Simulated scan of single mutants.
Amino acid sequence: MMRNWLFAPLFLYALMLQGCIKDAPLNPEADIETVVVDPHLLTGNIFVDQVNRTITLNLTNEAYESGISPVLILSKGASVKPASGTLIKFDADQDVVYDVTSESGENTKRYTVKVVNIGHWDFAFENWKSHSTDKYEYPVDDDGLQLWSSGNAGVALSGVPARSDAYPTRSTTDGYLGTKAAELVTIKGTPLSELIGIRLYAGSLFLGNFNASQAMLNPLKAIEFGVPYKGLPKSFTGYYKYSAGPDFINKAGQVQPGVKDKCSIYAVLFNGPDRLNATNIMTSDQVIAMAELRDGSDKANFTRFDIPFVYKQQAVISKNLMMAIVTSSSAEGDQYRGAIGSRLVVDSLSIVPLL
C-alpha cells in the first residue's frame, strides 16, 4: 500500500511532463548550403550566392557538353527538384534551376545555375541584364551568362532607389565601338551607409563574384576576383575615358585640397582555384603576373591602352590558373576615398594570349 502511494505522484508527474513535451517544430529553412561536383570536372571553386540565389559552376568543356550530376547539401529536412545527384545538361536557351522546399513546407526557394566556360577573352559590353528586384545592371556574354560583377549588389543593401541610374555601375550608349559600354561613376553614400562610415561608393566592374552575404561585415572580402584561364597572357588591351570629380574626400568625408582622383584598370593572373579578394589581389603569393594602367588621369576622349603582363621572377605556375580584370572610377574606392562624380567608361577589353 505504501509502495503504491509513493509511486502515484511519480506516475502523475510523468504524465504531466509528457503533456508538456511537444514535437520539435519542422525546419522552415529552404537553402542549398553546399554543392559538390567531381573536382575533375571543375576549373575553379563552386560559388553559392544565397542573396541572389545563384550557383556558379566553373566547368571544363567536357563537363559542359556532357552534363554533370551535382550532389546538393540542403537545409535539414528540405527537399529539392530535380533531386540531388540528378544529371543536368546545359542549354543556352534555358536556365537550369533547382526548386527547394523546406521541411515545414512553408518556404520555397529557386536557385539558378550559372556556368562559367570562357572560350574567348574579348569583352565588348554590348549585352546587359537587370537584377529582377534591385534593378541594377550587369553585363552578360552572347549566351546570356554573367561573367562580370560589381559592387552594385552591396550598394543595393544601403537603400538606394531600385533603378539602374541610382547605382555606380551601369551600361551607357557612350561607347567606343558598338552600341554600349560600361559606365562607372563614384556616387555619394546613403544615410544608412554613412552610419557605418561609408560616404561614397566607387563604380567598379570585375571578373568574378560579389559575395553579398559578406557585404556589411567584410566588404573587401565580398569582392571575389577571378575566373578560370587557360594558357599564359601576353598583354591587356582596351579603350577608356575618364573625368575626375571636383573634390577628393577621405574616409571621414573631409575634402583633401590638392588631391585629384584617378581611375584604376588592371588585370592579374594568379594560381587558383581559390579566388583572391580586395584585401590581397595586389599582394598575394598566388599572383603570377600583372598588367596595370599606370596613367589614371583624365582622358576626355577614348584612349587605347596595350599593357604587357609583367611576370614575377621564379613564379610557380599551377594547372589551375585564374584571371582577374578590375576597373574602378576611384583608385582608392576600396578604402572609400575618392571624388563624388568621377566617371570612367571602359569598352572593348581584351586579354591577348602568348603565341
Rank of each mutant, 00 (worst) to 15 (best):
K241Y: 03
K241C: 01
F125W: 11
P168D: 12
G245K: 00
P273V: 13
G245P: 03
Y64L: 14
T186L: 02
T133F: 14
V352F: 13
L59M: 08
K89C: 03
E106G: 07
R53H: 12
T237G: 01
V35F: 05
N271P: 04
M290F: 01
P257M: 03
Q254Y: 12
P82Q: 07
C20N: 10
D261C: 06
V140S: 08
W5D: 14
P246K: 04
M16L: 14
T56N: 07
R275V: 08
G119K: 14
E332N: 15
S150F: 01
G119Y: 12
S149D: 13
E65W: 00
P353Y: 09
S149F: 06
Y201A: 08
L195T: 09
V346G: 11
A14W: 08
S204F: 05
P219I: 01
I32L: 09
V268M: 04
N4L: 13
K312V: 09
L10F: 15
Y13T: 12
V160Y: 03
E194A: 06
V160F: 08
Q18E: 03
R199L: 10
N52G: 10
T190G: 11
V51S: 09
Q50Y: 04
V115Q: 07
Q256A: 00
Q94A: 03
I187N: 03
D274Q: 14
Q256I: 06
A244D: 03
W5F: 12
Y242L: 06
S104T: 01
P353M: 13
S329A: 15
D285A: 06
L157M: 14
D143G: 11
L355W: 10
G341Q: 13
E332Y: 13
S69I: 03
A162S: 13
G203Y: 06
S84C: 07
S69C: 11
V36H: 04
S149K: 07
A267M: 07
G341P: 15
D49H: 09
I351L: 14
V51W: 03
N45Q: 10
F206Q: 05
Y240F: 15
V96T: 12
F302M: 00
V113R: 01
I198K: 02
K188W: 05
E126S: 08
A202S: 15
A291K: 02
G296D: 01
L74H: 09
S284K: 00
K81Q: 13
I88H: 02
L276E: 07
L145T: 13
G154A: 00
F90E: 04
I325P: 05
L157I: 07
V346Y: 13
I21W: 05
Y239Q: 01
D143I: 10
V268P: 00
V71H: 08
N301A: 06
K109D: 00
K188G: 12
Y98E: 06
Y336N: 15
L349E: 05
T56R: 11
S132H: 13
V71N: 10
I21N: 08
H120L: 11
L195E: 06
I73Q: 12
N61A: 12
T303I: 01
I198W: 04
R3N: 10
L145Y: 13
V140T: 14
D285N: 11
V100D: 05
S264N: 12
K180T: 09
Y111P: 00
R53E: 05
I317F: 06
P161Q: 06
G144R: 09
R199V: 04
D91N: 08
I198Q: 07
R53N: 10
P228C: 09
N152C: 02
N209Q: 14
E224W: 00
S213V: 06
